[in-house]
């Protein structure tokens, strides 16, 4: 499957509150509350304002968290990006 490019919601659209093992995210546009676990908050953080795909996201996360073997992470990140898109927290660029 093609490595699709996504863009995170604008920073002022989301209110992100870590609550222990869960992170609550309030989307001001939809008025919906989303409850997510790691690595969703980290993915949103790493995306910032730039458009990125699973490959570039894997590289950023690897740099931020001092990981290697980014190839294995790509299909997982692509799946997580699709889930975030379904929640409306990221959108296809």
């Amino acid at each position: 499957m093609a490595d699709r490019i996504y863009r995170a919601a604008p920073a002022d659209a989301l209110r992100v509150e870590p609550l222990g093992e869960l992170t609550a995210i309030f989307d001001r546009r939809s008025m919906q509350t989303h409850l997510v676990v790691s690595p969703m908050p980290e993915i949103l953080d790493a995306m910032g304002a730039d458009a990125c795909n699973a490959a570039s996201l894997a590289a950023r996360l690897a740099a931020a968290f001092d990981l290697d073997a980014t190839e294995d992470a790509q299909p997982i990140l692509a799946e997580r990006l699709r889930e975030l898109a379904a929640m409306g927290l990221v959108e296809r660029a």
Binding site: R15, E17, L19, G20, E21, L22, T23, A24, F26, R28, M31, T33, L35
Partner: peptide, 25 residues
Amino acid sequence: GEGEAFVRLTEASTNYVALGEAGFA
């Protein structure tokens, strides 16, 4: 934990959704 208490209280609140961000905060 904070997360579980949050989930349980959203379920226990009758107007959480209607309050929008004020309820979330």
